[in-house]
Design a protein around this nucleic acid. Structure first.
Ligand SMILES: [Zn+2]
Ligand SMILES: [Zn+2]
Ligand SMILES: [Zn+2]
Ligand SMILES: [Zn+2]
Lengths: 130, 130
DNA sequence: TAACGCTGTGTAATAATATAACATATTTAA
DNA sequence: TTAAATATGTTATATTATTACACAGCGTTA
């Protein structure tokens, strides 16, 4: 919570917008929406997005080049993300599954990699689209 | 193997190139390399890439917008991919871990999604970069 | 208080990634 | 042998992201 207080003007504007949407937003759609607030250039948006991702307030959906707010206070350090994505309606939901997280957190390959982050995206059809 | 035989000219050229590299290649770097073979436009590359991804000959590394050849005959239907990515040297390795695959294949959320695909990317430091 | 590092802002230009639209050719299958 | 499906070639354009540069605000510290 105290991190919220230290956000800059542009970061707040953009986080507010993303948090109001329950679905991922794309950078240029964000740019369009915040022009009325005086944010004029892509770079202003990308800088805020980078910071918000870094502190875990939002996550990037890599397969969609879009950004969604994190609703889980526990993953504020965006190091372990799991999403479910409907390939028909594009609905995206963040998944918090303790057993799955444990499994992924404990995963060791046989090459001696030292992991500090993972991102998992499940694709399929949601209830409405089946 | 018989799928290889049915690849078109452009698909073969581009698959050959990707298979010769043990690391992911980006679309425009592929384009640059195949110009000498008569492939002149981005779309020709992207069309081949789409097809090769579809039949599981290559995979897209979503977080890097790059394409890597699949060396595992079992995942020819690119529905279940796991990668390890070194954030320092950008080395990418496809992971085949039976236990992990089982776990992911069997994962069910509580929203009634019907999954048909997943992609997992681990990030960290490889042995050389630690 | 001045010098400095750090973080953020604003702006313009450009790079990098990907697709639309259209015309034509080749392969496959009924 | 026609029709459908798949692939090609080309131009233009859309979308996503970064580089480069100038400057502002703030806390530290010499
Ligand atoms: Zn989260
Ligand atoms: Zn759906
Ligand atoms: Zn594979
Ligand atoms: Zn490395």
């Amino acid at each position: 919570m105290q991190k919220q207080e230290t956000l800059s003007k542009n970061q707040k504007i953009i986080l507010d917008l993303i948090e109001k949407s329950d679905q991922p937003l794309k950078a240029y759609s964000i740019l369009f929406d915040v022009k009325k607030k005086g944010i004029n250039a892509p770079l202003q948006v990308y800088r805020a997005l980078d910071k918000l991702v870094e502190i875990g307030k939002i996550h990037k959906i890599e397969s969609r080049n879009a950004f969604i707010a994190c609703k889980n206070s526990k993953c504020q350090i965006a190091k372990a993300t799991v999403f479910s994505i409907c390939e028909s309606c594009e609905d995206v939901t963040e998944i918090h599954d303790h057993k799955l997280s444990e499994h992924l957190r404990n995963f060791k390959d046989n090459k001696g990699m030292k992991y500090n982050k993972y991102n998992l995206e499940f694709f399929g059809l949601c209830k409405k689209c089946i």
